Amino acid sequence: MQFSVLGSTEITNDNTPLELGGIRQRAILAYLLLNANKVVATSQLLHAIWDGNPPPTARKMIQNAVSAIRRTLTTNTDPTTTATLHTHAPGYQLRLNTETIDLYRFRRLVREGRHATATNNPHHAADLLHQGLALWRGRALADLVETGITWSEITAIEDERLSAIEDRLEAELACGRHREITPELEILTATEPLRERLCHQFMLALYRSGRQVDALRVYRRTREALIDGLGLEPGRSLQELQHRILEHDTKIQVPALVG
């Protein structure tokens, strides 16, 4: 049995998606998955599902949803991936191997990718980060977001994704793949104009592709977005890159480790 939150909430058994019921049951399952192996207080679930304004029958609704989730878990046909949902004061605990949850596999691969970067192995880093990002099937908990749920955890997970993308692009640059990633960076910097690290990577990729004028144009565009959106000038790293591009600094040319 496998669990997915990097996209719509989903449980699969033998690669077959299982019926999860209504949105309330899906939301409770998702919240328990985000807090796998931890005790989640009923009060936390009440706040998460009803945004701090639960109806009088809310606790009973949670009990019914938990019972339904337990029935779904009993359909598991793989004894190596057992998941159990326990009543544990002051609430509930979903016990399972976190490797069965795509979010936790993603986080493990990102950690391994960052370690590969730190040990000067960008090719392996890029591969690991690509594997992790390939687990995503859309926005995190997309089915819940569509109903208006706005958990801070969802925003945090989406930021993890963007950070992992930036880490992968950094590894790709270290491998000398600046031309290959330029189109992707063009899209990302258009959708995330205030992320300076993406801008830095885009400028570097353009410069290494012989497009100095375009790289400087990206700097000006980002600077305008930062001033208009946040009232801030670009950070030191971005300003230094602009100066190095203007001076044709050899230190920002294609690295020696290329393959």
Rank of each mutant, 00 (worst) to 15 (best):
Q2F: 13
F3V: 04
S8D: 06
T12D: 00
D14S: 15
D14A: 15
I28Y: 14
A30R: 08
V40C: 12
H47A: 15
A48R: 04
I49M: 12
N53Q: 14
M61G: 15
I62Y: 00
V66P: 10
S67N: 15
R71F: 02
L73A: 03
T75N: 13
N76I: 08
P79E: 14
A83E: 05
T84E: 14
L85H: 04
H88K: 15
P90G: 04
Y92V: 07
L94V: 06
R95L: 14
N97S: 14
T98P: 13
E99T: 09
I101S: 04
R108L: 15
H115S: 12
A116T: 00
A118F: 07
T119L: 09
H123T: 12
H123F: 11
A125E: 02
L129A: 08
Q131S: 13
L141E: 03
D143A: 09
S152G: 14
I154K: 11
I154R: 11
T155E: 13
E170K: 01
E172W: 02
C175I: 03
G176L: 08
L185C: 09
E186G: 13
E186V: 05
I187Y: 07
I187R: 09
E196K: 03
Y207I: 03
G210L: 05
R211S: 09
Q212P: 06
A215F: 00
T222N: 12
R223S: 07
D228K: 14
I245W: 02
D249R: 00
K251P: 00
K251H: 14
